[in-house]
Design a protein around this nucleic acid. Structure first.
Lengths: 140, 140
DNA sequence: TTAAAAAAGTTGCTATAACAACTAATAACA
DNA sequence: TGTTATTAGTTGTTATAGCAACTTTTTTAA
């Protein structure tokens, strides 16, 4: 019988919680939650995605995306407009405020990544990433 | 500047979501949520922990533990009693139903672990675990 | 070309997750 | 010993996370 420490999924879960909690505190002063930040990170790379595009890229339920985008709109970081080509679809665009936020947040997330990977080599990270991907495929 | 795929924390986060979602579906027929299952796993190994013990072992906020334990009690899997030595503390004990549930759930979680680690060697798992631990320490 | 199917979003629900502020009980210590 | 600090648990709030069922619009197909 397996004991507590043998479950790798628990290990991953605890690590995710710890990392998410850390970045949550770093982002809090900017009135930005971690998942909201992920959405903005997508938009900073490519503005004008639809909610559906975002849901696919984040591999998340569209329900949550809708609510998170709504929050981002309330905070004034993005603006939604009905797509001209498909009236079902909502295009999500950064506001000036949302674009400006990127200049502050991106250094913070890069610093965070640097901190997290401290003492871990490039090869180890690649290996880690490879194994995690395999696990995601195993659980499909 | 880092791009999307360079953030190892995102990789971990997505993997955790995928694995949690998978086991959630496996446990759903038993009216058991993933985190509730973690609590029961602790109790199956050592019955009679306090809510505070559970919070420490799971490294979670005691608030959530209180609510999850309450749910487990409503479902009839555990029973809480005030500790005789410390009247602030609640002792959490398995009911007959809760103990019986273990016989059904443990094979499922072991099968889950087996599925997740398919095609991954023992050394790779050890290495993974070591790196994850390092990351948790980095984010402390 | 109209009926059926699919797609994009929304609303409602349940379950985490963590913080702040609170009560009650116990421990520390001056 | 009596005040203070700490500890265990609860309540309230905000933010994910995903399922089911729904509306509106677009696409497929008979």
């Amino acid at each position: 019988m397996l004991s507590w420490g043998d479950y790798i999924s628990i290990d991953i879960h605890q690590t995710d919680l710890k990392l998410t909690s850390y970045i949550k505190n770093k982002l809090a002063p900017f009135n930005l939650a971690p998942e909201q930040n992920l959405i903005l990170m997508l938009l900073w790379e490519l503005d004008g995605l639809s909610q559906n595009d975002i849901a696919e890229k984040l591999d998340k339920d569209k329900t949550n995306i809708a609510r998170m985008v709504l929050n981002l709109e309330r905070k004034g970081f993005i603006k939604r407009t009905v797509s001209q080509h498909d009236r079902r679809s909502l295009k999500v665009n950064l506001t000036e405020k949302g674009r400006a936020l990127g200049n502050k947040i991106i250094p913070i997330t890069e610093e965070f990544n640097h901190l997290v990977t401290h003492g871990i080599t490039e090869e180890e990270l690649k290996e880690l990433s490879r194994i995690l991907k395999k696990m995601r495929e195993n659980a499909r």
